[in-house]
Amino acid sequence: MNISNKSGNYLAMTERRIITGINDSLGFFPVVSIIGPRLVGKTILAKQIPASFYF
């Protein structure tokens, strides 16, 4: 997902930071929850997590 706005690829960079944080958390905690309001991309974010974290 590549979203651009007036400040460049800010949203894409934020998304990568979030994915990194989720991957780090999955290495430490057995369960990580992705929560948020409707239509903000939770499912898209979850699909970007490596399959090795699923059981």
Rank of each mutant, 00 (worst) to 15 (best):
V31Q: 06
A12T: 11
Y10N: 13
G36H: 11
R38D: 05
G8P: 00
F29W: 09
V32C: 00
S7Q: 11
L11C: 11
V32R: 08
A51R: 13
V31K: 06
S7D: 10
E15G: 12
P37R: 01
L11H: 01
I49P: 07
A46L: 12
P50H: 11
Y10C: 03
S7L: 07
T43A: 03
F28D: 14
I3Y: 06
R38Q: 13
I18S: 03
A51C: 05
I18L: 11
T43L: 01
K47P: 05
G21N: 15
S25Q: 14
F55V: 06
K6T: 02
G21L: 08
I35Y: 15
G36Q: 10
Y54L: 11
M1Q: 00
F28P: 03
F55K: 10
G41Q: 04
I35W: 10
G27N: 15
F29S: 02
A12H: 07
S52T: 05
T20A: 12
T14D: 06
F28T: 14
V32K: 08
P50G: 07
I35C: 11
S33E: 08
K6G: 11
R16C: 02
L39M: 08
A46H: 09
I34N: 10
R38K: 06
A51L: 02
S52L: 12
S4W: 02
Y10V: 02
D24A: 14
K47N: 07
I49F: 04
R17W: 03
E15A: 15
G41A: 01
F29H: 14
I34R: 13
V40N: 03
V31F: 14
T14P: 03
R16D: 14
I3D: 01
D24I: 13
S33V: 13
K42D: 11
V31A: 08
P30S: 05
F28K: 15
S4P: 00
F29T: 01
G27V: 08
D24L: 11
T43C: 01
I49K: 00
K6F: 05
N23P: 09
I19C: 04
G41M: 10
T43M: 09
S33G: 14
P50R: 03
K6P: 00
F53D: 05
P30E: 05
V31L: 14
I35K: 15
K47I: 01
I18F: 01
K42S: 02
Y10R: 04
F53W: 13
I22L: 11
I19H: 00
D24Y: 13
P30D: 03
S7E: 03
R17K: 15
M13S: 08
